[in-house]
């Protein structure tokens, strides 16, 4: 059930995001305040927060969508 292309796509997107955050934190330790996440009044942090919330909503929507697909199949089988 979780082997679909969409699931893989979301997993890779999340892993990629985590990778970028980890990288950003490493550079904080090295050079202090000069990394991308702290530029422009830290607006990138807000963008990041909004992206996490949005992706959370999407994941929830996808799960609901799948639940209904499953129910539709069950009722069809009856």
């Amino acid at each position: 059930m979780y082997k679909s292309g969409l699931y893989r796509f979301i997993c890779s997107a999340v892993l990629l995001l985590m990778h970028f955050i980890a990288e950003a934190q490493e550079s904080v330790n090295k050079i202090g305040m000069a990394d991308a996440m702290r530029e422009s009044g830290k607006i990138y942090v807000v963008v990041g927060v909004l992206l996490i919330i949005f992706l959370g909503f999407i994941a929830f929507l996808i799960m609901t969508d799948r639940k209904i697909s499953k129910l539709e199949k069950e009722i069809k089988a009856k």
Binding site: L6, V47, L51, D65
Partner: peptide, 21 residues
């Protein structure tokens, strides 16, 4: 049949990033 759902998510991710930046 779900390509438009993916399109919606991709467009909105773009809108959130570009919309602020």
């Amino acid at each position: 049949n779900n390509w438009w759902k993916i399109l919606s998510v991709i467009l909105l991710i773009y809108v959130i990033i570009a919309g602020f930046l």
